[in-house]
Design a protein around this nucleic acid. Structure first.
Length: 625
RNA sequence: GCCCCUAUAGCUCAGUGGAUAGAGCGCCGGCCUCCGGAGCCGGGUGCGCAGGUUCGAGUCCUGCUGGGGGCACCA
């Protein structure tokens, strides 16, 4: 059920209607900025002043009278302060027991999302399967994973897809290194690290070796022909790398429902069929002359089209050599995601306990196709640099007549991870230019490997963790929280010290708060919770309010697709608990059964809510460290 | 040239048009440990510049300046 903040807003809205305002403005209610004023406050009277031609103060007073006639449950008093703020003070004696009971029963309780039941396909990770995942890929995966968790918590049916771009040129690069430069893994070298190394080496040699560039072209053609020894080698390489990626991401708590392979999109004719649709419906057309002569394109500046394909923007879908661009494949993929392509993959399990995967081979199919795709809404977690091609996919859907699908296709853009000068310098990058940040580059080997960072984090917490598994969970918590606490529009300028910090606003601090709560609960036996709470301390009251607002925090994170807002909530909850822990008498010394019973239940409710918040963030709650 | 993001404390970042702009890190001092300091408390006039809208602007609009990214027959 909604919290008192929500009920207060509703009560105010009702009071506004009673004043004869048929269409009230949105009633904003927030925690009171001035704690003396109350617990929740609304400035809505200021908005109404113009329309009603009366002073905000006067309006607020009438609204206060209106709300007071039918106050929400657990209201202690309604007041007016300042120039016209309308405030509610909570009656904690009845509110606290209720909030605690609800937090322990089902912390996700909230009015259902009106969109609940809509199937949402979330695509994230989509790391090229030719090298080890680095920190940028990990940020993508953590964002996508938490978005998926939060949407599920709000009642959506969510399917997480990881798109495997296994027919791209980057795969060819590594194959060239293996087949033509004779590169092999060093003893004990993980396969994905080896491929990263091979990729860097090949890219370095292209500059001076035209023959090698030609070999890349031939290798790519062979892969695209989907036949022969090279294609088989490519399939094996990409499969092994995908397995590495799955293991890396699993360390950070990230999982998938379905792997979708680009090679299957081609083999099963998705691409051909999509191109036919684009052609038949006049969305794509051939350019006869000019710089794009021989290409099939999607014209981008509407209105000024026809006649002069030489002018203006156009996105190439089929190159003059007949090879489709990535965007063309992405259009086909998205038609499939929405279930409007008219074709389907075959499906099998990737491995025991692993995700499902697409396959082009009907003989291998073991899973029901009806389970997959057919999205009502699509969220693509892709970095901000790909905004332009994402717009093209959306526009293509719209022009094909899939207008609602185009509207329900959302590019969840986020900024990249870059390196601080210190971190870049440590990797051997020349930082004499004095730039404030340096870009990651897998091609140049300028990167922080996801596994390497998790290893380093684990090494640093090892000494203080009770065992290996705990250290691993703490390390993942530190890294994952670091990647989630930044807003999506913020470039993370990676810094080792900041990422692996265990104090303050960090994943380890959150774990510590949770473990502490568990420690208290273990030491003190539960007692009955009094129906009417005794006088609460200021720390207890703050905690009750925060617990009550958890569903609201989850809803907000879901609506704005913003993991960082949930991270912020979780941190506030942890600090509120630490505050209580520090500033109230130790629970085992409290003799008053009412105080003890209520506070123990409050701490239990905090533990439960912390555990739920941590889980949504993808951190495994630890009862002991 | 056009488009997108961005500018808040020494540093890294929060901040749905509402009251006195907050955290963390670092630094100094103190407290204490129901989890073992990964804890708590104290020490702070900082919203790039100039206009505008508004009862009210860090938040919205315009312009300027600085930073990042994008506009390939790459993915």
């Amino acid at each position: 059920m909604p919290d008192l903040q929500t009920y207060f807003a509703r009560a105010i809205e009702a009071a506004i209607r009673e004043l004869g305002v048929p269409d009230p403005p949105e009633v904003v209610v927030e925690p009171s900025a001035v704690s003396d004023a109350g617990d929740y406050s609304s400035p809505v009277a200021f908005r109404l002043a113009r329309e009603l031609r009366r002073s905000p103060r006067e309006i607020a007073q009438e609204l206060a009278a209106g709300v007071s006639r039918r106050p929400p449950a657990h209201t202690r008093e309604i007041t007016v302060t300042g120039g016209g703020y309308l405030n509610l003070r909570i009656d904690f004696s009845s509110y606290a027991p209720q909030v605690i009971a609800e937090a322990l029963r089902d912390p996700m309780l909230l009015e259902p999302d009106p969109l609940a039941g809509v199937k949402v396909v979330v695509e994230h990770t989509a790391t090229n399967p030719n090298k080890a995942a680095h920190l940028g890929h990990l940020r993508n995966a953590c964002i996508g994973d938490t978005v998926a968790r939060v949407l599920r918590a709000r009642g959506h049916q969510v399917e997480v897809q990881n798109y495997i771009d296994d027919t791209g040129v980057q795969v060819a690069d590594v194959l060239v290194g293996i087949r033509h430069l004779g590169l092999t893994p060093a003893p004990g070298e993980p396969y994905d690290r080896f491929c990263s190394r091979a990729y860097v080496e090949v890219c370095r040699r292209y500059e001076a070796d035209q023959e090698l560039v030609e070999l890349r072209r031939q290798t790519l053609r062979a892969i695209e022909a989907r036949d022969g020894e090279i294609a088989t080698a490519a399939k094996e390489l990409t499969s092994r790398i995908v397995e590495c990626h799955l293991q890396t991401m699993a360390r950070a708590g990230v999982g998938y429902d379905l792997l979708t392979w680009e090679s299957d999109i081609i083999e099963l004719g998705f691409l051909r069929h999509a191109l036919d649709m684009l052609l038949e419906r006049g969305v794509m057309r051939k350019v006869e002359q000019g710089r794009l002569a021989g290409c099939w394109v999607l014209p981008l500046d509407e209105g000024s089209d026809d006649d002069d394909p030489e002018q203006g923007d156009a996105k190439v879908l089929l190159k003059s050599d007949g090879i489709a661009t990535y965007t063309a494949k992405d259009i086909a993929y998205h038609l499939w995601k929405f279930g409007v392509l008219g074709l389907d993959f075959h499906y099998r399990s990737w491995a025991d306990g692993g995700p499902a995967t697409s396959t082009a081979d009907p003989q291998l199919a073991t899973l029901d196709p009806a389970r997959f795709g057919r999205a009502g809404e699509v969220v693509n977690v892709i970095d901000q640099r790909q905004s332009a091609p994402q717009r093209v996919v959306k526009e293509a859907l719209r022009r094909l007549g899939f207008v609602s699908q185009a509207e329900d296709l959302l590019h969840l853009a986020y900024e990249v991870v870059a390196l601080s000068p210190a971190a870049a310098g440590a990797l051997g990058v020349d930082v004499s230019e004095g730039k404030s940040m340096y870009a990651l580059s897998g091609r140049q080997g300028i990167e922080i490997g996801a596994d390497a960072l998790l290893d380093e984090a684990q090494r640093q917490v090892q000494a203080k963790a009770k065992d290996e598994a705990t250290a691993a969970a703490l390390a993942a918590s530190a890294v994952r929280y670091y990647l989630l606490r930044f807003g999506l529009n913020s470039i993370i300028t990676f810094d080792f010290g900041e990422a692996l910090r265990t104090t303050g606003d960090s994943g380890v601090y959150l774990q510590y708060a949770h473990a502490r709560a568990c420690g208290v609960l273990q030491r003190v036996e539960p007692l009955p919770v009094p129906e009417t709470a005794p006088e609460l301390s200021v720390e207890e009251r703050e905690l009750v309010k925060l617990l009550a607002s958890f569903p609201r925090a989850v809803a907000e994170a879901a609506e704005s697709l913003s993991p960082s807002s949930l991270a912020g909530y979780t941190y506030r909850l942890a600090t509120a608990f630490s505050d209580l822990y520090e500033h109230t008498e130790r629970l085992y010394r409290v003799d008053d059964h009412a105080v003890r019973g209520l506070r123990r239940a409050l701490i239990d409710a905090t533990r439960a809510t912390m555990a739920n918040a941590l889980t949504l963030l993808g951190l495994q709650p630890l009862a002991r460290i």
